[in-house]
C-alpha cells in the first residue's frame, strides 16, 4: 500500500496542473509563477477545484488554510503541495460579516483542524464540517473571534511618524 508521488519535469507538471484546472472549471485568474500554480476562484467552485486537485491531478497534501480579514470580506488561501516541488495556491473571497463556506474535509481530511482554527479565530462557518468546535479558545462564555480586525487589543500601537 504505497502512495505514488508525481515524477518527472516540474515545469511540464505545473503546465499540466494549470490545464487540468482550466479545462474543468471557470477560474477568475490562473497563472504559473515560479513553482506555484496560482488560482483565484469563486467560493461556489472551490470544492470542485480542490476535488479536481486531489482526485484527478493527485495533489495529495493540503499544507494550510490562511484566512485574512479584509474588513467586510474574508480572503481564504488554500495551499496545496504535490510533495515533489510543485505548489498550487487557491484563493477565494467570501463576502459578509458572518461568512459561510463549504468544508473541504471530505476531500482533504487534514483540513479538519485548519477549519476549526479558522472558525475559532474568524468565526467562519464551514458548511458540512464534522466537528466544528473552537480549537484554541474557550468553548463557553467567550463570544469573540480574536483575529478579526474588529477585535481590539489594549496595547495597540501605531508607528506613524517614526523614522
Amino acid at each position: 500500500m504505497a502512495v505514488t508521488l508525481p515524477e518527472g519535469d516540474l515545469n511540464s507538471r505545473l503546465e499540466n496542473y494549470l490545464d487540468g484546472f482550466r479545462n474543468r472549471h471557470g477560474l477568475e485568474e490562473a497563472e504559473v509563477d515560479g513553482n506555484v500554480v496560482r488560482l483565484v476562484v469563486k467560493p461556489e467552485v472551490l470544492l470542485a477545484v480542490l476535488a479536481t486537485a486531489k482526485e484527478r491531478l493527485r495533489i495529495l497534501h493540503l499544507s494550510f488554510i490562511t484566512v485574512v480579514d479584509r474588513v467586510g470580506s474574508f480572503e481564504l488561501t488554500y495551499e496545496l503541495l504535490d510533495l515533489r516541488g510543485g505548489q498550487v495556491r487557491v484563493k477565494t473571497t467570501v463576502e459578509g460579516e458572518e461568512p459561510v463556506i463549504d468544508t473541504v474535509t471530505e476531500i482533504y481530511p487534514t483540513a479538519n483542524w485548519h477549519e476549526r482554527e479558522a472558525y475559532d479565530m474568524f468565526g467562519i462557518a464551514f458548511k458540512g464540517h464534522p466537528d466544528l468546535r473552537r480549537l484554541y479558545m474557550w468553548q463557553d462564555h467567550f463570544d469573540h473571534h480574536p483575529l478579526l480586525k474588529s477585535f481590539e487589543i489594549s496595547t495597540k500601537r501605531t508607528f506613524e511618524g517614526l523614522r
Binding site: 500500500m1 502512495v3 495529495l60 493540503l62 482533504y108 487534514t110
Partner: peptide
C-alpha cells in the same frame, strides 16, 4: 502511508511510514 498522507503529516511521522 495513505493514512499519513491523508492526515497531512509531515516530518518524521510521515517519513517513518516510508514517504
Amino acid at each position: 502511508q495513505e493514512k499519513a498522507v491523508e492526515m497531512g503529516l509531515t516530518g518524521v511521522p510521515l517519513r517513518c511510514t516510508g514517504v
